[in-house]
Nucleic acid binder design. Structure first.
Length: 255
DNA sequence: ATGGCGCCACATTGGCGA
């Protein structure tokens, strides 16, 4: 079972690339973030023609998440239970016996921004909710754009980024708190190339110079990580014309 | 030097992303 996550930065613009990627990699499930479209505009026909079911939660302009799956997604839930968030950032569902959570963690903008406080509060609610989800679903995978680079090795220039949003100590503490609930960072369960990242700034030839951050992650519960046989970042779509600024991350499960 | 690039919308400029 191949599961994947990709922040597409507008599904409207990236739809042809998503369809190409599905055809090439045939994942059992693909979690998408930053759809940037309302549910009424979700390209359901194109996704279904590609052989996928879709569960989605979108809004105009910002955010928006979806789970595409080859078998139907059941018990679909939207948002973080008990956290009334108008921003569409979380969708979860059962797919072939695995509970999938697709998440788009707030960016935070900068440490002195209200958006940063929102991010930390959001992560606190997310963590409390995931603890309950984990108790209910031993086979739990949390895929998405976490907007946190967990370690300096996940940052192209740790000195330049020191203390900035995406790498600040409170954000990294929040990420570690998620791990402590009973998850593993699937990417770090395997030997990986040096300087592996999932996001590169559009500006300054960030991708060509590999000036990136590893901020997209697939967290697996202990019940699932034992069945994980690999995890990798697919750099190819970042080389496309009009690419997303994020690359897909893929995990293989022996299920 | 807070820029750069890309996407979106109350659009020809500003908000936001990371």
């Amino acid at each position: 079972m191949r599961i994947a996550s990709w922040n597409v930065n507008s599904l409207k613009v990236r739809l042809p690339q998503v369809l190409d990627w599905l055809a090439k990699h045939q994942p059992h499930a693909l979690c998408l973030q930053e759809l940037k479209l309302e549910d009424a505009n979700f390209p359901i026909a194109a996704i279904e023609s590609a052989g996928y079911f879709a569960a989605f939660s979108g809004q105009k302009t910002y955010n928006g998440v979806a789970i595409l799956s080859r078998s139907p997604a059941t018990n679909v839930a939207r948002g973080i239970a008990g956290f009334g968030d108008p921003q569409r950032r979380v969708i979860s569902a059962d797919v072939s016996g695995v509970r999938l959570v697709c998440a788009y963690v707030p960016n935070g903008q900068s440490l002195d921004s209200d958006k940063y406080n929102y991010k930390l509060g959001w992560l606190s609610s997310f963590s409390a909710w995931l603890e309950r989800e984990l108790a209910e679903h031993p086979q739990l995978a949390v895929l998405g754009d976490y907007n946190i680079a967990p370690e300096d090795s996940d940052v192209h220039d740790p000195k330049a980024w020191e203390g900035q949003v995406l790498v600040s100590a409170p954000e990294r503490d929040a990420f570690r708190n998620l791990i402590r609930l009973g998850f593993s960072d699937s990417f770090r369960q395997f030997e990986q190339p040096e300087k592996s990242y999932t996001w590169w700034d559009y500006r300054m030839n960030g991708f060509k110079r590999n000036l990136g951050l590893r901020i997209d992650h697939i967290l697996l519960s202990h019940g699932l990580v034992a069945k994980c046989t690999g995890c990798s970042i697919d750099l190819e779509p970042r080389r496309n014309e009009r690419p997303s600024d994020h690359a897909p991350i893929v995990a293989e499960l022996s299920l």
